[in-house]
Design a protein around this nucleic acid. Structure first.
Length: 207
DNA sequence: CCCCAGGATTGCT
DNA sequence: AGCAATCATGGG
């Protein structure tokens, strides 16, 4: 049981995702990290903090151009500044606390926000609101493909949520471990050295 | 010079 | 429903 997780944990340890002081900071990072390296996001977050902008009520009152200056290093800064304003407004409307909302409402409302898709929404649900919600990203998809598991977002998510014990902290680190593993061993070109792949692509993995 | 990064939206078929 | 184009900076 949990054979693969044990292997990954022994190899990579606790990844401590998502480093942030507040749930809002997690949400901001979730927007900024879209199609962007995390190192760039860290710089942008540091900029926002230093400018005292990393609070929902402050950010909503900030001119979009000011925000763009702080987050330029993450690329797509025009859309991302708009998305940050939208999600900051959502936080202020909910008294900066999304943790006590019913999961269904929270999930639906996040997806209604322009700029928040399934992965971003699930990242916020798991890492900011501590909800049992497994995040599927491009790396996770690639690992699944190596193994022989394919499907749309919902199908892949169901697969993980059915096979992994219901524990929020486990979900957080498991997703992080899959990403760091995939980056290192699971390229699109070859998934040879895949320690996950040792079953011979039967699709049956001891998650 | 190329390609990719912890995606989402839009528009076309 | 699926697919490509688009957004844009920074680093290998």
């Amino acid at each position: 049981m949990m054979d693969l997780y044990k292997k990954l944990f022994l190899k990579f340890g606790n990844q401590n995702w998502w480093p942030a002081d507040t749930p809002f900071e997690v949400a901001v990072g979730a927007i900024l990290t879209q199609q962007t390296k995390w190192e760039s996001v860290e710089r942008a977050i540091a900029n926002l903090k230093q400018a005292e902008l990393l609070h929902p009520h402050v950010l909503t009152a900030t001119d979009q151009q000011i925000i763009e200056e702080q987050i330029r290093c993450t690329g797509f800064y025009h859309q991302k500044s708009e998305r940050l304003l939208i999600i900051a407004k959502y936080f202020t409307e909910n008294n900066n606390d999304i943790s006590k909302k019913p999961l269904k409402d929270l999930q639906r409302e996040l997806l209604e926000l322009k700029g928040v898709g399934r992965e971003t929404a699930d990242s916020i649900l798991l890492y900011a609101a501590d909800r049992l919600c497994f995040v599927i990203d491009a790396y996770t998809r690639q690992v699944c493909k190596c193994i022989g598991i394919e499907g749309n977002y919902q199908q892949l998510q169901q697969h993980f949520e059915q096979h992994i014990p219901a524990d929020v902290e486990l979900y957080k680190n498991y997703h992080a471990l899959i990403v760091v593993y995939s980056k290192q061993y699971c390229n699109k070109k070859r998934c040879d050295e895949c320690i996950i792949n040792s079953t011979g692509r039967t699709g049956r993995i001891d998650w």
